[in-house]
Design a protein around this nucleic acid. Structure first.
Lengths: 200, 200
DNA sequence: GCATAAGTTGAGGACAGCGTCAACTTTGCT
DNA sequence: AGCAAAGTTGACGCTGTCCTCAACTTATGC
């Protein structure tokens, strides 16, 4: 790739990060091109679909989450690890509208999801086996947590305080083994969830 | 109002109900006009803004919810009443995409909200005083419940089973007094919530 | 039955976002 | 320096939705 092309690519990704964070994933792409100081044609040349751009813009968020997951697994108490992970990810979502929307809708690619799946799977399993997380809670149920927080962050974005923390605390209280009452319906299957995130 | 005008009005409202239920509140309005068998001009003549149409279309949903609320208050056990109400409203949401979106965004009018507020207020207070609903749960916290379910219904709409029931059960488990751990942040104030639903 | 107010119609202007492509500019190799 | 390949540009056509309004149709009271 030519040097100027590489530079423009970087500018575009940086601009996309900013614009997505401020205005969400559905912004008009000219806004990104404009902020990058590059023509719309160049944007399309480099990123033929909006998704290509989204993926590029959030590539390092994926890394961040992976790091958070590793750290969570490093904490001695499994429940603390679980809580830590959920809280930190929610924090990321609260700070970045684009990332929040991404968490709600899912990325239309399974590549990096697989990585996150494995990590979360371990965090959940460990917490469950530790005995504090309720026994009937599955990895797929994490989607409920994410979706919930996602919506509350969205709705309360303009509020001064981080009210989502209150919501999250209420949710977590329902996930403790000590709070558990029988659940009426089986969890989503892995395929169902994958379909949802893929948009089928 | 002339007889034909009245008829067209009814047709439009009926069409709006159907179309909103199927495709959400953001459908192109020609779709509604078309289904009503009426020209787009007539639609705009009768309902100058989209909101006017939405309000008309969901007028009786508001009544339904009121009836559910009354019934909930009639149940002897306060907690059962609370659960009944939340479940039934969620059911309505699951059956009608438009209503689900309405619950998520709020109606840009405070008229009928006031009525719902009063009713929910009583349901929540009674359950709290009954001792099963946690003492630190406020009316405003109900928004968290609604938002959560709203999102899950949306995401899992194409799924065969009513997975939202599982999500709701998890939520409810966190609302019991026996599950309560201290909450980190004060609830939304009534004004904050009103602003959110009004879209400020 | 006729006049007139009430109501309807749908073509069309305004707008916003998408994505393309032929003409132009820049890079970097020789 | 010269040149081919790589890259950039932005005006433009397309699509979809909104909303209006001048011309037309219909209901109703007399």
């Amino acid at each position: 790739m030519r040097r100027d092309a590489e530079l423009n690519r970087e500018r575009l990704v940086a601009a996309a990060r900013e614009v997505f964070a401020e205005r969400g994933l559905d912004v008009a792409l000219d806004a990104v091109a404009k902020r990058a100081g590059v023509s719309i044609g160049t944007l399309y040349n480099r990123f033929p679909t909006r998704n290509d751009l989204v993926r590029a813009a959030f590539a390092d968020s994926v890394d961040t989450v992976a790091r958070l997951g590793e750290h969570a697994l490093g904490l001695e108490d499994p429940w603390d690890g679980f809580v830590y992970f959920v809280e930190q990810v929610s924090q990321l979502q609260a700070a970045d509208r684009g990332y929040n929307e991404l968490a709600a809708r899912g990325v239309p690619t399974s590549e990096e999801l697989a990585r996150g799946y494995d990590l979360m799977s371990r965090i959940v399993a460990r917490a469950r086996e530790g005995g504090v997380l309720r026994a009937d809670f599955t990895l797929e149920d994490m989607a409920f947590v994410t979706w919930s927080i996602t919506r509350t962050i969205e709705a309360t974005a303009k509020t001064g305080t981080a009210v989502w923390r209150r919501h999250l605390a209420l949710i977590l209280d329902g996930l403790r083994a000590s709070a558990a009452h029988p659940l009426p319906v089986p969890p989503l299957s892995r395929e169902e969830l994958a379909d949802i995130y893929r948009g089928c």
